[in-house]
Design a protein around this nucleic acid. Structure first.
Lengths: 364, 364
DNA sequence: TGGTATTGCGAAAGCGATAACGTAGCTTGA
DNA sequence: TCAAGCTACGTTATCGCTTTCGCAATACCA
């Protein structure tokens, strides 16, 4: 039994510290915040104040502070779907960078629902977040959100996602390069008959990755067989691509198409493809190589471990924070600041799911 | 270029709505919050106020509201390590339940570091979170934290973790039952020589799971060969158990121990074990069955998909929120409330990593 | 010696909202 | 007929903190 009557001892306030230490609240504030004016405060006074603050167990009331100073020391982080494995390390990166700056993150998860996204945005704005980070890869949000943000002068950045007519900063992986890296790798291993599972149109990543593939193929004289090119269906469930990868690969096998490698849109698709291949008795990587994209946590743990293109997710999260913090500081110092649209370099991670094409394989 | 000089239009305040609509701030407050007194406000007045609020794009200032009402409408959620796959669905459950209640979650990630934990706790208390949820499975935090919390009368709950001398609510899976379910399953499949990989002592889950195993073994007359019982090392890295599972299983195989099944402490350990078995040419499940615990996202995607004991993680998150909310409401209504220590029922999820013991196998 | 800087601190005005209390006019019942 | 209660709002006092302004005193310089 918890009795609320346990004398919910009114929190000790700054005024308490002031009267106890014999100074005014103003001085206490200046000392405890180490404000510029603290230069002029006598060391003895500082000590007295700090000591009594500690003795009383004073804890500043953030709300009062925020109300007065108009700074909330928090930034909103809006995820489109937190169960997407892509998000985990981004969270880590964001959280860590904010922690360094003594900011707190208010995470929100839109569950891929537009109205939920907007409701959360509203809640975050009411709380006067000083900045906003939006993590998504769906082409969902339209311009009016941006309008609201820039009118209110809230520094924002998107991760894995970009708004057209960029008035808003963004951090993305260089998808085109990433796709090229993977394909180049397969090509170097001797693969010529490669099946491609493209991403859904809805995803902003899909087009540039395909472009990277086409450019490399063109440059290297690699022929892309249209019959080996598939495209994932539109879906809101981030984990559905495993299913799709499985089914599409199964279809290819049933149609007796010849290929020695599958380049999948992302890791989950690749894992689905591997599952289908294995089930059909096609060994990976002995008979068929598979590549993914993202390097989510699973990929190194899967059997076989997945060769994939890593997005530097923690770094992307940290960079987004830095961009936003720069915006915040700029506004504070009444400087100008720039919208930045940064493309991060992906990294090819070679594991066990790719191998040089076998001579006994179907590579005519 | 972003010019800060874009007339950062001072946010429209309640006073603006008041003067514009011709009523007093108090009335505006009552109407917009639909406070009890709103019964007495003329419908026409309500409409006028609501209309002008909408017209001006009024958005309440949460900080001012919080300062006055002493309610922050947010609860802190303290994770020990957010990269632990165990956490993802808990986050989802917590977030969703809070969303229903129009509360916002302030997530914090302690990175398994005690000082970081304490710093975050401090930050959360400064923000006057109305409740606190701590997600962990390490026996890390000691009593003085609890003392602080209950003195400040902040309803709290832990997930996957329990404090001794329980003055604080907790939500855990019934580990003993879960372990029994898994072992029972293996036993029914005919397995008699079973290797066990126990959890590290540091984890609170380890002991009850082992107890469940022992009890079932005793009841069923199953003999546990001490040579087949291993224990994971203490480690702070949630993903290290894959490595350990791999290595330990490798050791068992090298020592030519006979066993037809491995019951691993958790899913990652199980996946590591499977990897070692597969690498050594022992097929799962044909030659050896493997079970895990948790049912993290990977488990259904792995090859073979993992038979495991599911923790109802979303439900656990939601329940923790409900417990905390009940505490908050109780305090508000000056009711008493109870500390609850809830054990949730685990569920056996049978997939492809377990099979009836083969006659040709090594089961003498 | 007088004037300017530097040092050391307090008084008071809010930040934007809510809650307690007032103040009317009007209805109702005995 | 008049106290009591309901209806429909407005006044005012904070909530706990920051910040600007202001006032002294002491130090410095010419």
């Amino acid at each position: 039994m918890k009795r609320p009557s346990e004398k919910s001892q009114a929190a000790v306030t700054m005024r308490d510290v002031a009267t106890q230490s014999g100074f005014s609240p103003a001085t206490v504030s200046i000392v405890l915040n180490n404000a510029p004016l603290a230069r002029y405060i006598a060391p003895a006074t500082k000590k007295r104040i700090e000591d009594t603050a500690k003795k009383l167990g004073y804890r500043p009331n953030a709300m009062a502070r925020f109300l007065r100073s108009k700074r909330s020391h928090s930034v909103g982080v809006l995820f489109f779907d937190i169960t997407d494995p892509f998000c985990t390390l981004i969270m880590r990166g964001v959280e860590n960078a904010l922690y360094q700056a003594s900011y707190l993150a208010i995470f929100a998860d839109a569950h891929n629902q537009r109205n939920r996204f907007e409701r959360y945005l509203e809640l975050l704005l009411e709380r006067h977040v000083e900045g906003l980070i939006v993590v998504a890869n769906w082409l969902f949000v339209d311009i009016h959100v941006l309008a609201d943000l820039s009118k209110r002068n809230i520094p924002s950045a998107t991760i894995g996602w970009e708004l057209p007519g960029n008035n808003i900063s963004s951090v993305m992986v260089d998808n085109e390069t990433g796709a090229r890296l993977a394909l180049e790798h397969l090509h170097q291993l001797g693969h010529r008959k490669i099946a491609f599972i493209r991403g859904p149109k809805m995803l902003i990543d899909s087009a540039p990755r395909w472009r990277g593939i086409q450019k490399f193929a063109h440059g290297a004289g690699l022929e892309i067989d249209p019959a080996l090119v598939l495209q994932l269906p539109e879906s809101l469930d981030p984990n559905s691509s495993f299913e799709s990868g499985y089914r599409y690969t199964e279809d290819l096998l049933e149609q007796r198409k010849k290929f020695t490698a599958v380049m999948a849109f992302d890791d989950l698709t690749a894992l689905g493809a591997i599952r289908a291949l294995t089930k059909a008795g096609v060994k990976v990587p002995e008979h068929c190589s598979v590549t993914g994209f993202d390097d989510i946590a699973l990929s190194s743990l899967a059997a076989p471990s997945l060769t994939t293109v890593r997005q530097p997710m923690e770094a992307m999260g940290a960079l987004a924070v830095n961009i936003v913090m720069d915006g915040i500081n700029a506004a504070l110092e009444k400087r100008d600041w720039n919208v930045v649209n940064q493309k991060m370099n992906p990294e090819l991670v070679i594991r066990d799911s790719t191998r040089a094409v076998s001579l006994t394989g179907g590579d005519d």
